[in-house]
Amino acid sequence: MSGLFAIYKKEIVTYFRSPIAYFLISSFLLGTGYFFIYNVFSTGAATMDLTFRDMAFLLMILIPVLTMRIFAGEYAGRTMDLLVTLPIFTWQIVLGKYLAAVTILLIMTLATFINLIPMFLYGNPHIINIVSGYIGFVLLGMASISIGQLYSALTKNQIIAALLTLPTLLGFWWLGQLQNMQSSAFMQNFVGYLAFSIHYSELIRGLLRSEAVVYYLLVILTSVTLTINYIKWRR
């Protein structure tokens, strides 16, 4: 596990020694703060439902910036040859990098807790909804990072990695719109199951269902496994 930890530590230092982490956290906080104030004042309700939806959309725009350099940066800096020749297993490289990106996501998430202070001071929010919403947000972020990381492994160009990640994430989000266009019940359920937005909507409404959690975990597992195998195959 020391190999995984070495990669994790190097990635975290890299994020904070470059402007990426600061840019992501500050943009996300600014955006979330704006949406929170707008939603609370326009509805007058002490709820995070609308803000969670806006946060998800903002997250999907920012995730490509976070993930584009994960492997494409290693290829461009010609450091990938070093990583694969060190006595570290490929899964440790992929997981170390993935967990570092998830750490940035968690910092972004924790930073939004500041919005909860006035809500609890002046309103009476449903704690279950907020906890479930945050679980959904983190799961959505983790799934999006795993997809972004896969694209970053597939190309040497960071911009291309970001440009492929963004439409894929938005595609997974808007897949729910196609649900009503399906004639068969099976296809309606299938398309609904694949859509990020459908599972996320349930979670931010306080419905912490195992189906949604398993769905996001499956996306993460599939993308991370594909990344590991691609890196191995690339040798």
Binding site: K10, V13, T14, R17, S18, G77, R78, T79, D81, L82, T85
Partner: peptide, 15 residues
């Protein structure tokens, strides 16, 4: 058992 110096030194500029 291997120490490898590739053609282009594999360095992380920000470190």
């Amino acid at each position: 058992q291997i120490g490898y110096l590739p053609e282009h030194p594999p360095l992380y500029d920000v470190l």
